[in-house]
Design a protein around this nucleic acid. Structure first.
Length: 263
DNA sequence: ATGCCCCCGGTTCGGGGA
């Protein structure tokens, strides 16, 4: 089973790229972030025509997440628990049946950017990460196949960016940000890509500005975090870097993990 | 030190992104 995460940066502007990638890459489950539309505006027909079920948690203009899947989930939950006043659409959970009375629980998340650091946005990011830690703790207790996939807006380590010095005071790389990410690892979650390769200059985002793509000035901020039950069955990962060179690309590319969930 | 570039809503600019 192939599970991917991709910050699409506007699904309506990116529908041709998305359908082409779905045809090429053929994921079983795709977690999308920054769909930037209300649920009613999501181009579901084009996606359903390719054989995918569509679940969305959108809002007007920005944020918004979606899960595309070849099988219909048994259960879907919208929003990250822990703050009823939080109206930003950044989290979607779907539970899929597997043979042998087992499930795969997949969460699609768009973690807040947090810049500028001296604004209310950084405390919101850290509070969101703490809510995610609590959520993960509760879900890990189920001892299920659990995959937390999305745009984490976290550069975990210096080698996850082209030039660490420029990120030193950025919300994506501050010590507190990285510490909060490490806490997820401490719970027993595995970073799928980093568990399968030591490669350097492995990125999932290149800024549109200053010819970042051409210079390979990227960062690795899109992650699939796996419970032990999922990590034990992971067979490989890949990053679909080539889509960044397509016309009208997202600034992020799909990050993919493959699993053998046979009994 | 700042902007580079892109999407959205809805109009020719501001909010937001990273």
């Amino acid at each position: 089973m192939k599970i991917a995460t991709w910050n699409i940066n506007g699904v309506k502007a990116r529908i041709d790229n998305l359908t082409q990638w779905l045809k090429d890459s053929d994921p079983d489950i795709a977690c999308l972030q920054e769909i930037k539309t209300i649920d009613e505006g999501f181009p579901s027909l084009e996606i359903q025509a390719l054989g995918y079920h569509v679940e969305t948690h959108g809002q007007k203009g920005f944020n918004g997440v979606a899960i595309l899947s070849k099988s219909k989930p048994d259960e879907v939950n919208r929003g990250l628990p822990g703050d009823p006043r939080d109206e930003q659409a950044r989290f979607l959970e779907a539970v899929f049946s597997l043979p042998g009375n087992r499930v795969a629980r997949v969460c699609c998340l768009y973690l807040p950017n947090g810049n500028p650091v001296d604004s209310e946005k950084y405390p919101y990011k850290l509070a969101w990460m703490e809510r995610l830690r609590k959520f993960a703790t509760e879900r890990l207790a189920f001892e299920e196949i659990l995959i937390l996939a999305g745009d984490y807006n976290v550069i975990p380590e210096p080698h996850d960016c082209f030039n660490p010095s420029v990120w030193q005071n950025d919300a994506l790389f501050l010590p507190q940000t990285r510490q909060a990410f490490r806490k997820l690892g401490g719970l027993g979650l595995t970073d799928a890509v980093r568990a399968t390769t030591d490669a350097v200059q492995l990125y999932s985002f290149w800024d549109y500005q200053a010819a970042a793509w051409q210079k390979n000035n990227g960062i690795r901020i899109d992650h699939l975090m796996l419970s032990p039950e999922a990590a034990d069955r992971m067979t490989s990962t890949s990053i679909d870097k080539h889509v960044r060179a397509w016309e009208k690309p997202s600034d992020h590319v799909p990050v993919v993990a493959n699993f053998d969930f046979s009994a």
